[in-house]
Design a protein around this nucleic acid. Structure first.
Length: 684
DNA sequence: TCTTGGTCCTTTTTT
DNA sequence: AGGACCAAGA
């Protein structure tokens, strides 16, 4: 726009260093930005988007930025908005891969072979379907379900169709997997449903088979930016390649050292494949770190040096050396947690910082238990993030089941979840007969409830109950679509007296109340989503809202919690992309970090990257802890400290308790901490 | 149909 | 240690 002609830069790139500036301004061809941890890659992406809009004159409508998490997408969108204003970012796409895929399927619904009101199944639902299929087709005991589900996911990520999988299967097990995959996929189609992997695979296959559809999307998306590129899987990369085609509008940002999702199909080698697939690829490296102290960065570099590297890169920082890294050996897991808790209390006072400045990271979600207990004991507020905490809750799954059935009556998985919850006196026999009938007629179970022809199969009483349910839900559905959807949902919840059900089935009334609060929170999220969309002039139907919920895209919860002054508890995986002044990594033991499965599967390099991610989260101090004895399955087991601790530069480390500290000494150490704590409190 | 008690298994990471 | 699942009783 004219601003540029007046000689005033529309986009301010002055805060970027030369490398960053180069990456932001290079638009003549495909670009790979190798961005080390803390090197300001989000600044580069957001400013590049601003540059594309403000200087290159590309309409925001034609730009898409893709990330992996909702949180990252949200943050990116906010930062772009603050750069170019709300108006300037109008129509800009900033979303997760899965959301983009969902969008594409929505727009190309019939071509993709789906009907209106399809649902997205989460992993639990899919597992249920696979369990059914394997039970029915192979009489399987259920021991292989997880394995098969994983294998199917991998096949999908690699864009392998069921019949092809059957054709190339070379072992009985592979054949079993392929056959299950085939039936599973047919069932999804029958349910008019997709799973997470389909959200990527379906659009990709669609683009491949329908050039006219692809052309339409290529016209829409003229510049594509991909964040965390090392996390893309084959089908995601294929989607990117198809969308970009022979054009130049592609910037990808990634760091091979932070590839920690190979276990779910990510292909870090996509980074080097880029060079082959786009011969004119330009590479820019961002190596200055703006986050951590020199010692922390040095430690990270030393650890990751033990991995082979395709792209050489050396992170540096000019933020001073900082404090040495602490390693604490504790007697057992309880002492470990206690130590962390007391240290946080002490340091908060010493540094005068907030609880929010501390993060405790661990390998597996179950490890949060001990530290939670100790933080509670010291009355330290904390926020546990990640896990399936919210969506894994039964009350949420119940209500989500109703919602899914509302938008897609053919969703049998949802039907089965809710048909007798709360109790409607519809037992297994009735359900089984209904299922048989539905299968025979080739219709969904929901549709079968209100059909004539069931009379011969069922007792009149059972029949009546089924029909009542069917008609009732039909009514609610009508209301949800014609009336206020939120009111319809509320009506539904009160109709089934869900609150009463919870009261009856929760241990304590208190628990029931908490669960009900979760339900209202869910309803509230829907209502907020709809009103927010209206504000922006978008439409958000109940379907949109439910899909967003399934994809865990809920804005409000996050925002509220971000403001609270709480210690952050999360897995190492969940910590990627975040930073904290003071970081604790607990459980630095062989078999735990690196995890036993990774040792057995020989994927130590990925574990090392996980370690690297953890270390590079820290801005000021880093503390690594491990326990000499750890309770495992109820029994205290001796442990060995993690090999990664030996990879740290010894001179930059204070290792407490490495040489067998006697119980005596441990005790004394505890006393010291306690008395210093007391002094500190006295000062206040 | 709902409750109870016993047994067995668990713990990697997630859109 | 704790949760999930299943078999047997009220």
């Amino acid at each position: 726009m004219p601003a540029r002609q007046r000689g005033k830069p529309v986009v301010d790139l002055s805060q970027l260093n030369p490398r960053q500036k180069e990456a932001a301004k290079y638009v003549d061809g495909p670009l790979l930005v190798l961005a080390g941890a803390g090197s300001g890659k989000t600044s580069v992406i957001t400013r590049k988007i601003a540059y594309l809009i403000g200087v290159c004159g590309i309409k925001s409508y034609h730009i898409a930025a893709v990330t992996f998490t909702n949180k990252a997408a949200r943050e990116m969108k906010e930062r772009v908005m603050s750069l170019v204003g709300k108006g300037g970012a109008k129509g800009l796409t900033v979303s997760t891969f899965h959301n983009l895929g969902l969008n594409i399927i929505r727009h190309e619904l019939t071509t993709a072979g789906y009907k209106n009101g399809f649902s997205i199944l989460d992993q639990d639902d899919c597992k249920g379907i696979i369990r059914d299929v394997m039970h029915r087709e192979h009489g399987d005991d259920g021991d292989m379900i997880e394995l098969v589900q994983n294998a199917i996911s991998n096949l999908k990520n690699d864009l392998i169709a069921p019949d092809h999988a059957i054709k190339v299967a070379s072992t009985p097990q592979e054949l079993l997997i392929a056959q299950t995959y085939s039936v599973y996929q047919r069932m999804l189609k029958a349910y008019n449903a997709v799973d997470f992997d389909d959200l990527i695979m379906v659009p990709t296959v669609l683009f491949r088979d329908h050039p006219e559809v692809l052309t339409r999307w290529q016209k829409k998306i003229r510049y594509l930016l991909v964040d965390e590129y090392q996390d893309t899987n084959t089908s995601q990369y294929e989607l990117v390649k198809l969308l970009v085609g022979h054009r130049t509008g592609l910037t990808v940002v990634g760091d091979d050292d932070q590839s920690i999702y190979a276990w779910r199909g990510a292909r870090p080698e996509n980074l080097s494949l880029l060079k082959k697939d786009f011969p004119t690829l330009k590479i820019v490296k961002l190596e200055q770190n703006y986050r951590s102290t020199g010692l922390i960065l040095n430690a990270a570099n030393r650890v990751i040096d033990n991995n082979p590297h395709e792209f050489e890169k050396k992170l540096w920082s000019d933020m001073g050396y900082g404090d040495p890294i602490k390693i604490l050996k504790c007697r057992n897991d309880e002492v470990e947690a206690e130590r962390i808790a007391t240290e946080i209390v002490e340091r908060r006072l010493r540094y005068g910082c907030g609880y929010r400045d501390f993060a405790v990271l661990y390998r597996g979600n179950h490890q949060s238990r001990v530290i939670e207990m100790k933080l509670q004991a010291y009355q330290v507020p904390y926020k546990l993030s990640g896990g399936q905490s919210f969506f894994g809750r039964n009350e949420i799954k119940d209500i989500m089941g109703y919602l899914r059935l509302l938008i897609n009556p053919t969703d049998d998985a949802a039907f089965l979840r809710v048909i007798n919850t709360p109790r409607r006196e519809i037992g297994p026999t009735t359900i089984e007969k209904l299922g048989e009938y539905a299968a025979m007629r080739g219709i969904s179970m929901m549709a079968a409830t209100t059909e004539m022809g069931l009379e011969q199969q069922l007792m009149p009483k059972a029949l009546d109950r089924l029909r009542r349910f069917g008609h009732w839900l039909e009514g609610i559905t009508r209301n949800a679509y014609t009336d206020d959807p939120v009111a319809a949902v509320k009506e539904m919840i009160s109709d089934i007296d869900y609150e009463g059900y919870l009261l009856q089935n929760s241990g304590t009334p208190n628990q029931a109340e908490r669960r009900m609060k979760n339900v209202w929170f869910l309803v509230d999220s829907i209502s907020k989503m709809i009103s927010k969309a209206e504000e922006l002039g978008d439409e958000c139907t109940i379907e949109d809202a439910v899909s967003k919920l399934i994809l865990r895209d809920m804005m409000e919860q996050q925002e509220k919690e971000d403001e609270a002054d709480q210690v952050q508890l999360m897995t190492l995986h969940a910590s990627k992309g975040l930073e904290f002044p003071h970081v604790y990594i607990m459980g630095m033991e062989e078999e735990l970090m690196p995890h036993r499965n990774s040792i057995e599967a020989d994927t130590i390099e990925e574990e090392r990257r996980l370690m690297y991610v953890g270390i590079t989260r820290a801005k000021r101090t880093l503390t690594l802890t491990y326990a000499g004895k750890r309770r495992q399955f109820g029994e205290a087991m001796d442990t060995t400290h993690s090999r990664f601790l030996d990879e740290l530069p010894p001179d930059d480390i204070v290792w407490e308790g490495k040489t067998e500290t006697s119980a005596e000494e441990q005790k004394q150490r505890g006393q010291e901490t306690l008395s210093s704590l007391r002094n500190m409190l006295a000062d206040f």
